[in-house]
Amino acid sequence: MKIEQKKIDEAVQTITGYGGHGILNCVQCGACSAVCPGVKAGFSLLCRNLIRHLLNGELEEIIEDPSSWGCQACNRCTEICPQDVRPQEVVFAFRRYQANEMAFSTSAVTSQMNLYETGHAVFTDARELRKKVGLPAEPPTSAYNEKAQREIQALINSGPMGELGLF
Protein backbone atom coordinates (compact mmCIF):
# COMPACT_ATOMS: atom_id res chain seq x y z
CA MET A 1 0.00 0.00 0.00
CA LYS A 2 1.23 3.45 -0.82
CA ILE A 3 0.50 6.35 1.51
CA GLU A 4 -1.18 9.07 -0.52
CA GLN A 5 -2.14 12.10 1.54
CA LYS A 6 -4.62 13.29 -1.10
CA LYS A 7 -6.56 10.05 -0.89
CA ILE A 8 -6.50 10.09 2.92
CA ASP A 9 -7.80 13.67 3.01
CA GLU A 10 -10.50 12.81 0.49
CA ALA A 11 -11.64 9.81 2.52
CA VAL A 12 -11.74 11.82 5.76
CA GLN A 13 -13.60 14.70 4.12
CA THR A 14 -16.11 12.32 2.55
CA ILE A 15 -16.83 10.54 5.83
CA THR A 16 -17.05 13.72 7.92
CA GLY A 17 -19.25 15.22 5.20
CA TYR A 18 -21.66 12.35 5.61
CA GLY A 19 -21.75 12.71 9.40
CA GLY A 20 -18.81 10.61 10.66
CA HIS A 21 -17.34 13.59 12.52
CA GLY A 22 -15.28 11.59 15.04
CA ILE A 23 -13.17 9.59 12.57
CA LEU A 24 -9.94 11.47 13.29
CA ASN A 25 -10.28 10.84 17.04
CA CYS A 26 -9.68 7.12 16.49
CA VAL A 27 -6.54 5.68 18.11
CA GLN A 28 -7.27 2.15 16.83
CA CYS A 29 -7.76 0.59 20.24
CA GLY A 30 -10.24 -1.94 18.85
CA ALA A 31 -12.73 -1.87 21.74
CA CYS A 32 -15.57 -1.21 19.25
CA SER A 33 -14.74 -4.33 17.27
CA ALA A 34 -14.48 -6.38 20.45
CA VAL A 35 -18.16 -5.74 21.18
CA CYS A 36 -19.55 -5.47 17.62
CA PRO A 37 -22.07 -8.19 16.77
CA GLY A 38 -21.42 -7.51 13.08
CA VAL A 39 -17.71 -8.28 13.44
CA LYS A 40 -18.65 -11.39 15.38
CA ALA A 41 -20.91 -12.43 12.49
CA GLY A 42 -18.03 -12.11 10.04
CA PHE A 43 -18.49 -8.61 8.64
CA SER A 44 -14.84 -7.73 9.00
CA LEU A 45 -14.95 -4.19 7.57
CA LEU A 46 -16.84 -2.62 10.46
CA CYS A 47 -15.79 -0.29 13.26
CA ARG A 48 -12.03 -0.34 13.88
CA ASN A 49 -11.09 -2.03 10.60
CA LEU A 50 -13.37 0.17 8.47
CA ILE A 51 -11.87 3.28 10.09
CA ARG A 52 -8.33 1.97 9.51
CA HIS A 53 -9.01 1.45 5.80
CA LEU A 54 -10.63 4.87 5.51
CA LEU A 55 -7.68 6.49 7.30
CA ASN A 56 -5.42 4.72 4.81
CA GLY A 57 -7.30 6.58 2.08
CA GLU A 58 -8.88 3.41 0.70
CA LEU A 59 -12.31 4.84 0.02
CA GLU A 60 -12.89 3.53 -3.49
CA GLU A 61 -11.03 0.28 -2.83
CA ILE A 62 -13.66 -0.85 -0.29
CA ILE A 63 -16.75 0.71 -1.87
CA GLU A 64 -18.22 -2.66 -2.87
CA ASP A 65 -17.67 -4.27 0.55
CA PRO A 66 -20.99 -5.36 2.08
CA SER A 67 -19.83 -5.20 5.75
CA SER A 68 -21.30 -1.76 6.43
CA TRP A 69 -24.77 -3.11 5.66
CA GLY A 70 -24.28 -5.68 8.41
CA CYS A 71 -24.31 -2.94 11.06
CA GLN A 72 -27.38 -3.32 13.25
CA ALA A 73 -27.03 0.18 14.71
CA CYS A 74 -26.91 -1.31 18.22
CA ASN A 75 -24.42 1.43 19.17
CA ARG A 76 -22.39 -0.73 21.52
CA CYS A 77 -19.33 0.63 19.70
CA THR A 78 -20.32 4.21 20.53
CA GLU A 79 -20.91 3.26 24.14
CA ILE A 80 -17.52 1.59 24.60
CA CYS A 81 -15.40 3.97 22.50
CA PRO A 82 -12.92 5.78 24.77
CA GLN A 83 -12.20 8.52 22.25
CA ASP A 84 -15.66 9.74 21.24
CA VAL A 85 -15.26 8.47 17.68
CA ARG A 86 -18.90 7.31 17.54
CA PRO A 87 -17.95 4.44 15.19
CA GLN A 88 -21.58 3.71 14.30
CA GLU A 89 -21.83 7.15 12.75
CA VAL A 90 -18.71 6.47 10.70
CA VAL A 91 -20.25 3.22 9.47
CA PHE A 92 -23.44 5.05 8.53
CA ALA A 93 -21.47 7.83 6.84
CA PHE A 94 -19.71 5.17 4.80
CA ARG A 95 -23.10 3.67 3.92
CA ARG A 96 -24.32 7.07 2.73
CA TYR A 97 -21.23 7.38 0.57
CA GLN A 98 -21.84 3.89 -0.85
CA ALA A 99 -25.49 4.68 -1.49
CA ASN A 100 -24.70 7.94 -3.26
CA GLU A 101 -22.24 6.07 -5.46
CA MET A 102 -24.94 3.44 -6.10
CA ALA A 103 -22.70 0.82 -4.48
CA PHE A 104 -25.47 -1.02 -2.66
CA SER A 105 -25.08 -4.56 -1.56
CA THR A 106 -27.93 -6.78 -2.74
CA SER A 107 -29.15 -7.22 0.82
CA ALA A 108 -29.47 -3.48 1.14
CA VAL A 109 -31.44 -3.14 -2.11
CA THR A 110 -33.92 -5.78 -0.95
CA SER A 111 -34.48 -4.03 2.35
CA GLN A 112 -34.89 -0.63 0.67
CA MET A 113 -37.51 -2.10 -1.66
CA ASN A 114 -39.28 -3.68 1.32
CA LEU A 115 -39.29 -0.35 3.09
CA TYR A 116 -40.71 1.41 0.05
CA GLU A 117 -43.44 -1.15 -0.50
CA THR A 118 -44.45 -2.10 3.04
CA GLY A 119 -42.91 0.46 5.38
CA HIS A 120 -40.73 -2.29 6.90
CA ALA A 121 -37.10 -2.85 5.91
CA VAL A 122 -37.37 -6.42 7.14
CA PHE A 123 -40.78 -7.86 6.40
CA THR A 124 -42.26 -11.35 6.54
CA ASP A 125 -45.86 -12.22 5.90
CA ALA A 126 -47.03 -13.64 9.22
CA ARG A 127 -50.78 -13.70 8.59
CA GLU A 128 -51.13 -17.50 8.77
CA LEU A 129 -49.07 -17.71 11.94
CA ARG A 130 -51.00 -14.90 13.60
CA LYS A 131 -54.32 -16.61 12.82
CA LYS A 132 -53.02 -19.84 14.31
CA VAL A 133 -52.26 -18.18 17.64
CA GLY A 134 -55.57 -16.35 17.71
CA LEU A 135 -54.45 -12.90 16.70
CA PRO A 136 -56.08 -10.77 13.99
CA ALA A 137 -54.37 -11.79 10.72
CA GLU A 138 -53.37 -8.29 9.74
CA PRO A 139 -51.60 -6.21 12.39
CA PRO A 140 -52.32 -2.45 12.33
CA THR A 141 -49.10 -1.49 10.55
CA SER A 142 -48.30 0.16 7.26
CA ALA A 143 -47.88 -3.27 5.66
CA TYR A 144 -51.66 -3.63 5.35
CA ASN A 145 -52.58 0.02 5.02
CA GLU A 146 -52.44 1.50 1.51
CA LYS A 147 -52.86 5.07 2.72
CA ALA A 148 -49.89 4.70 5.06
CA GLN A 149 -47.86 3.10 2.27
CA ARG A 150 -48.61 6.02 -0.06
CA GLU A 151 -47.48 8.44 2.68
CA ILE A 152 -44.27 6.51 3.25
CA GLN A 153 -43.58 6.43 -0.48
CA ALA A 154 -44.23 10.17 -0.72
CA LEU A 155 -41.75 10.76 2.08
CA ILE A 156 -39.11 8.51 0.51
CA ASN A 157 -39.62 10.01 -2.96
CA SER A 158 -39.16 13.53 -1.71
CA GLY A 159 -35.99 12.76 0.29
CA PRO A 160 -32.43 11.84 -0.68
CA MET A 161 -33.50 8.19 -0.96
CA GLY A 162 -35.84 9.12 -3.80
CA GLU A 163 -33.05 10.86 -5.64
CA LEU A 164 -31.19 7.58 -5.87
CA GLY A 165 -33.83 6.41 -8.36
CA LEU A 166 -34.15 2.95 -6.92
CA PHE A 167 -37.91 2.90 -6.92
Binding site: Q28, G30, A31, S33, A34, V35, C36, V39, K40, S44, R48, N49
Partner: peptide
Amino acid sequence: VLAYDMESATNIE
Protein backbone atom coordinates in the same frame (compact mmCIF):
# COMPACT_ATOMS: atom_id res chain seq x y z
CA VAL B 1 -13.74 -12.02 27.66
CA LEU B 2 -14.90 -10.05 24.64
CA ALA B 3 -11.71 -8.91 22.98
CA TYR B 4 -10.28 -8.19 19.58
CA ASP B 5 -7.04 -8.91 17.81
CA MET B 6 -5.97 -5.91 15.81
CA GLU B 7 -3.34 -7.71 13.76
CA SER B 8 -5.65 -10.37 12.36
CA ALA B 9 -8.71 -8.06 12.45
CA THR B 10 -10.81 -10.70 14.15
CA ASN B 11 -12.60 -10.74 17.43
CA ILE B 12 -11.56 -12.98 20.29
CA GLU B 13 -13.80 -14.68 22.82
